[in-house]
Simulated scan of single mutants.
Amino acid sequence: MKQPLGVILAGGRATRMGGGDKGLLDLDGKSILSHVMDRLAPQVAGLALNANGDTTRFAETGLPVLSDSIAEFPGPLAGVLAGLDWAAEQGAETIVTAAADTPFFPSDLVSRLTSKADGMAHPLVLAASRDPDSGKLWRQPTFGLWPVSLRDDLRAALQDGLRKVVMWTDRHDGRLAEFPVTGIDPFFNVNTPGDLAQARAMANQ
């Protein structure tokens, strides 16, 4: 499998943070988005950002900004579709997505996802992590490996009203790649002001 392209998902409305772009909030002297870019860029062949509205607010990133092609903020799958359409233009076979508000995700994200896809007709893999208290395995729907070959299927599903990531991945026998939780949750994301304070404390550990 060729090295995938990377797409950072920043298309949400951040209602629990009072609106605005969570990725642009400061964390240890630079934006959360900058942390995500620094972590994902070495793992992929190129990067783009999925976001809606005025794209100039992300001009400093130097990244292409991909808007949803499905109206009314239908969720992360719309960002995945935007990434797949962009990747198709680049001649890529797959993308790996990461959320713009999750600064501590694994530095081996891409290698673990792609290794789990061995032998699949359509390499479709979601990240997952296990709750250390309950032992429950949680799927991380904004972190995944997605095949360009299924982009038209995804477009049709979104146009038919499908919104839940796992409903679509289950349709195509998507796999899970489990990531260990040691110390901090690698998929900890910033949704609220309290989360931001916690992330700032974690960044200085």
Score class of each variant (00 low, 15 high):
105 F>S: 06
102 T>H: 00
167 M>T: 13
185 D>Q: 08
166 V>M: 10
37 M>V: 14
9 L>H: 05
81 L>S: 03
13 R>L: 07
23 G>Q: 02
150 L>M: 11
15 T>R: 13
89 E>K: 08
163 R>S: 06
71 A>H: 06
169 T>C: 10
153 D>Q: 11
99 A>S: 13
39 R>M: 10
154 L>G: 01
61 T>K: 02
56 T>Q: 10
2 K>P: 15
197 A>F: 00
4 P>E: 10
129 S>P: 03
170 D>C: 07
193 P>N: 02
114 T>A: 02
15 T>P: 02
63 L>H: 07
145 L>C: 06
176 L>E: 14
39 R>K: 14
91 G>L: 14
68 D>I: 00
87 A>N: 01
174 G>K: 09
49 L>A: 08
115 S>M: 12
190 V>G: 12
202 M>H: 07
168 W>A: 07
196 L>S: 07
77 L>N: 01
97 T>K: 06
127 A>K: 04
162 L>F: 09
72 E>H: 15
12 G>L: 05
51 A>V: 06
177 A>L: 02
135 G>M: 12
99 A>L: 07
65 V>N: 03
102 T>I: 09
135 G>K: 04
166 V>N: 13
87 A>G: 05
141 P>G: 13
29 G>F: 08
186 P>K: 01
53 G>I: 00
108 D>F: 04
197 A>G: 06
147 P>K: 01
175 R>V: 04
81 L>W: 05
21 D>T: 11
41 A>L: 03
82 A>D: 11
73 F>W: 04
199 A>C: 12
79 G>I: 02
122 H>T: 04
3 Q>W: 03
15 T>Q: 06
31 S>G: 15
82 A>T: 03
190 V>H: 10
172 H>G: 01
1 M>P: 08
19 G>M: 07
23 G>M: 13
81 L>Q: 04
134 S>L: 02
178 E>I: 15
181 V>D: 01
187 F>K: 06
85 D>C: 02
53 G>Y: 03
65 V>P: 09
37 M>R: 15
175 R>D: 01
129 S>N: 13
48 A>L: 05
159 Q>P: 08
64 P>S: 05
160 D>C: 10
137 L>W: 03
51 A>T: 05
67 S>N: 14
21 D>N: 13
147 P>S: 09
91 G>M: 11
92 A>W: 08
19 G>V: 01
155 R>V: 00
